[in-house]
Write a protein that binds this DNA or RNA. Structure first.
Length: 109
DNA sequence: TGTTTGACCGGTC
DNA sequence: CGACCGGCCAAAC
């Protein structure tokens, strides 16, 4: 089938609950490719044109808004997160440890 | 068709 | 403690 790792990323990202955030590596690991976090990042790059995929809920493992620069505006990502109740300061998600949504844990495989 | 890069991560020097 | 390197997947040149 034409189904790919790429599409899998979108599925997981779309499953991220509102007010929660996830990490590239966490998604990659859930997909069975822990070292493919880069591919996840690239997938989200494509998802910039995909309104169905809340890429703003995906940050790096440090909770840093590394990809904010790829949004329509550098503040779009932070604004979107804050709109969902996620506190963001200095391109960094506050209480990231609590808001972190790990698919491999939440979805229990 | 081969090389380079990219919104990353982990380990090593 | 800071910087560098390798690895995975997919797209762009």
């Amino acid at each position: 089938m034409d189904y790919t790792f790429f599409d899998n990323v979108y599925e997981v990202v779309k499953l991220i609950p509102k007010g929660r955030v996830s990490a590239y590596g966490a998604i990659a690991r859930y997909l069975g490719a822990a070292k493919s976090a880069r591919a996840v990042g690239y997938a989200l790059n494509q998802c910039a044109s995909m309104p169905d995929v809340p890429a703003h809920r995906v940050v790096n493992r440090l909770g840093m808004l590394t990809g904010k620069h790829h949004f329509a505006t550098p503040t779009a990502m932070q604004a979107a997160l804050e709109a969902e109740g996620v506190e963001v300061k200095d391109d960094q998600v506050q209480q990231f440890d609590k808001l972190f949504w790990d698919p491999s844990k939440e979805l229990e495989m």
